[in-house]
C-alpha cells in the first residue's frame, strides 16, 4: 500500500509544492495586473527626422549644362560650382535618392536614367566617398523597378549599394511644424549612417501636381498609405521639401516628359531638352525645370509655397547660375 509511505515529511512536501503553485500564481497575477488596457493608439509622436545634409558654405549654388551625354553634362555642371569635392569629402557616406518609381525601361524616361546614376556614383567615389547607397521606395514592384530601369545594375556596377524598401527599414517621421507628414513611415534605413544626401530626379509631367522634379522626388522616401497625400499634393510637396535638406540635387532634363506623366510610356510623350541642372537649392532647380516643361510657376503652386516656407528661391536668376552650352 502507498499509505505506509505517506508520512508527515511527504505531507509537508506536498503542502510546500501546493503553496509554491499558489504563490506563483498570485505573484504572476500581481506582476501582470493591468487596470488600463492599451493606451489610445496614435498618440505617440516619437520617431526619427532627417538631419540637415546641406552645407552652409555651399548655399545657393547652381549650374546648368546643355548637352546629351549625361556623364559629361553632370561633370561640367559640377565643375562649374567647384566640383563634387566641394560637396562630398573623403570618407563620406552618401545616399543617392533616385526616382525608380516605375518598372519601365530607361528609354521611357519615367525614372532616373541609369547613365546618370552611374556617373553620379562614380563622381562621388572619385571625390572620396566611403560608401554610396542608391535607394527609393518605388510605386511598382521594387525589385522589378530597380532592375528594369537599369538603375540597379548601373549602381552595383559602379560600386554602390542598392537598398530596397524592406518593411524594417521604415521609421515614423514627423516634419516639424507640418500639417500632413506627422508620424509617417519614412524609408530611414539608408540614412542610418549617412552624412550626405543627393537627389537625382528626372523632369516629368505630373497630372496632379503639375510637375515631378527634385522636391516631388522625396515622395519616394515615404512609405505607408502615402497615396492619400494626393488630396493635398502641394502642401505635401512643400512639407517634403522641408523634411529633406539635401547636400545637392541633380535635375536631369536631358529628356523631358512633357505629357502623360508621371508614367509616360511612349516616346511621343518625351522631348529632348538637353539640360542638366545641378543645384544646392531644390526650389531653384525645380523653377528652372519648369521652364523646360513649359509650365508657369502659377501652375505649380508647390514651388511658390516651398519658397514661402524658406526652402529656397524660385527666382533662380538670383543665384546667377553658370550656363554651359554645347557640352560634348
Amino acid at each position: 500500500m502507498e499509505k505506509s509511505n505517506f508520512n508527515r515529511r511527504a505531507f509537508i512536501l506536498r503542502l510546500l509544492k501546493a503553496g509554491g503553485v499558489i504563490a506563483g500564481a498570485g505573484a504572476a497575477g500581481f506582476l501582470f495586473y493591468d487596470p488600463n488596457g492599451l493606451p489610445r493608439p496614435g498618440q505617440e509622436m516619437a520617431g526619427v527626422y532627417l538631419p540637415d545634409f546641406s552645407l552652409p558654405e555651399q548655399k545657393g549654388k547652381m549650374a546648368v549644362a546643355h548637352g546629351s551625354d549625361r556623364e559629361k553634362t553632370l561633370r561640367a555642371a559640377l565643375d562649374a560650382i567647384g566640383g563634387m569635392k566641394a560637396f562630398v569629402q573623403k570618407g563620406d557616406r552618401v545616399v543617392l535618392k533616385v526616382n525608380a518609381a516605375f518598372a519601365s525601361p530607361a528609354a521611357i524616361s519615367a525614372t532616373t536614367h541609369p547613365d546618370l546614376v552611374e556617373a553620379a556614383v562614380r563622381v562621388c567615389f572619385e571625390a572620396g566617398a566611403a560608401s554610396v547607397i542608391v535607394t527609393d521606395n518605388p510605386i511598382n514592384d521594387p525589385a522589378s523597378c530597380f532592375s528594369l530601369t537599369g538603375i540597379g545594375p548601373a549602381a552595383r556596377s559602379s560600386g554602390a549599394e542598392v537598398m530596397l524598401p524592406r518593411e524594417d527599414l521604415f521609421r515614423p517621421v514627423t516634419v516639424p511644424g507640418a500639417k500632413l507628414i506627422r508620424n509617417w513611415p519614412l524609408l530611414y534605413g539608408p540614412f542610418a549612417s549617412a552624412n550626405k544626401l543627393i537627389g537625382l530626379a528626372p523632369i516629368k509631367d505630373h497630372h496632379r501636381s503639375g510637375a515631378s522634379m527634385t522636391m516631388k522626388n522625396w515622395y519616394g522616401l515615404l512609405g505607408g498609405r502615402r497615396n492619400i497625400f494626393h488630396q493635398d499634393i502641394h502642401t505635401t510637396i512643400t512639407e517634403l521639401a522641408q523634411m529633406a535638406t539635401p547636400t545637392l540635387v541633380i535635375l536631369d532634363g536631358t529628356v523631358t516628359m512633357m505629357q502623360n506623366g508621371p508614367t509616360g510610356g511612349s516616346f511621343s510623350d518625351l522631348k529632348p531638352t538637353q539640360t542638366m541642372i545641378v543645384s544646392t537649392d531644390p526650389v531653384a532647380a525645380d523653377a528652372f525645370g519648369a521652364t523646360l516643361l513649359e509650365r508657369k510657376l502659377s501652375e505649380l503652386p508647390h514651388i511658390g509655397r516651398a519658397e514661402a516656407a524658406g526652402v529656397g528661391t524660385a527666382d533662380y536668376h538670383s543665384l546667377s547660375p553658370e550656363i554651359l552650352s554645347n557640352i560634348s
Binding site: S104, H207, H230, Q231, G261, T263, G265, S266, D269
Partner: peptide, 16 residues
C-alpha cells in the same frame, strides 16, 4: 470632392 487622381497618374498605358 477631394482631389486625388492617383489612379490616373499610375496608369502605365500611353496615352493613359
Amino acid at each position: 470632392n477631394l482631389p486625388c487622381i492617383v489612379c490616373q497618374e499610375n496608369c502605365p498605358v500611353s496615352p493613359k
